[in-house]
Simulated scan of single mutants.
Amino acid sequence: MSAGFAVVTAGLLLFHRGVPGSVGSLLESFLPWLGLVVVVLLGLALLRRSGVAPVALVLPAAAWAYACGGPLLPGEGTGPGAYGLVVVQHNVSDENPDPAGTARALAGTGADLVALEELVPPALSVYERSLASAYPYHAVHGTVGLWSRHPLAGARPVDLKPRGITEPWERGLRAVARTPGGDVAVYVAHLPSVRVRASGLASSWRDESAGRLGDAVAAEGAGPVILLGDLNGTVDDRGLDPLTSRMDGAGRGLAFSFPAAFPVARIDQVMARSAAVGRIRTLPATGSDHLPVLARITLG
């Protein structure tokens, strides 16, 4: 029995794209956790003193290392470049009881760029005041914002609104950061939330919004592009294919960011095109239900 489960687990890890529809999307959202199945099966094999099962577990263990082990390797995972940017991405939560404390924590990272989502009044004015000294340049559209140590130009909204949403919905922003390493197009996005059901993920709005964002990135000219946002999906989730097919994610680090009380997945993403995203890591909890994530991006 354990050997059979081992083979099935290995198959899911290696061929998860073959699992259809929303069930496959749900599987991909929690793919690294299949490693727990291997641990449980190994424990059962040891308890039963089975000689065959531990050998069979080599297959799913190798499959997990191939599918999910890359982020755990040492090193930054960046290529050579002349200039690096430190970026922070954080969904600050529209119910955050301490926006001033959250702003101080984020400013204390020394990041070059800070992207925030779920900015609502009156907390927005708190963030603007609290971040002003460390970040003299910022742009806000709707509930998303970008704070920068470097001048920003051409800030404008990006329409990510799915067709089925009728109420006001402004969750996309693009600006050009004029860094010492050159101009960088920076996107801040908050894609629609998804619901986990027995049948899989209810994610049609998220997927449609991801497609719109992917089209915007594809329309960018030559030069580096950075995407910071709460994408409500992991980089393995097929719903984010319009983005992950055009941009690279973090080379190292799992950085599970949600929910903050017991993080099980990273839905807060740092991606780049014509630039390399190094190790991504979470920062200490704020008053949000998400953890902030920080990464270094190498330009060039």
Rank of each mutant, 00 (worst) to 15 (best):
S2K: 06
S2M: 10
G4W: 08
F5W: 14
A6P: 09
G11W: 04
H16K: 00
L26G: 10
L26E: 02
L27E: 04
L31I: 11
W33H: 15
G35M: 05
V38I: 11
V39C: 02
G43T: 06
R48A: 15
S50C: 07
V52D: 00
A62P: 07
A65L: 15
A65F: 12
L72S: 13
G75S: 07
E76D: 13
G77I: 04
G79H: 03
Y83C: 09
G84A: 15
L85M: 12
N91V: 11
D94H: 15
G101V: 15
A107E: 02
D112H: 02
V114N: 02
L116N: 14
E118T: 11
S130H: 01
S130W: 00
A132N: 03
Y135W: 09
H138P: 08
G145D: 10
W147N: 09
R156M: 05
D159M: 02
L160S: 06
P162T: 09
G164C: 03
I165T: 11
E170N: 12
A175M: 05
T179E: 08
T179I: 14
G181H: 04
G182H: 06
A189G: 07
R197L: 15
D207W: 13
S209R: 10
A210K: 13
A210T: 13
G214H: 12
D215P: 03
A216Y: 01
A216N: 01
V225Q: 03
T234K: 05
D237Q: 08
R238Q: 05
R238H: 08
L240H: 04
P242C: 01
G249S: 05
G251C: 04
S257M: 03
S257D: 01
R266W: 02
I267C: 01
M271T: 06
A276C: 08
G278R: 05
I280N: 01
A285D: 01
A285N: 01
G287Y: 03
G287A: 08
L291F: 08
V293D: 00
G300Y: 03
